[in-house]
Amino acid sequence: MAKLSTEMVSLLGNYGHIGFTFVAAIFIGLGGGIYLDEHFFDGSTSPWFTFIGLAFGVFAGFKSLFDILRTPAAKSKDEDSEE
């Protein structure tokens, strides 16, 4: 039981934040793009930086998913299965 709950907690900790990190990355990219468009260039480049920012945000989201797969917990799990 104790072992099960530790495993549960480590799984929750490592993979429970996937959704939130993904969405946060997209929103930060989009927000940065909108800020560049509206406040830095005073709307003269609108809507280009918004789209570029959104694209970067989406890529950052996928990259954070990729990073989560390479966290120490995922590595140690592989090692366990090899033993």
Binding site: T21, G29, K63
Partner: peptide
């Protein structure tokens, strides 16, 4: 930019 965005996303998430 991608790395910076995903780093700031940590703060938010």
């Amino acid at each position: 930019p991608i790395e910076l965005i995903s780093n700031i996303a940590r703060l938010l998430s």
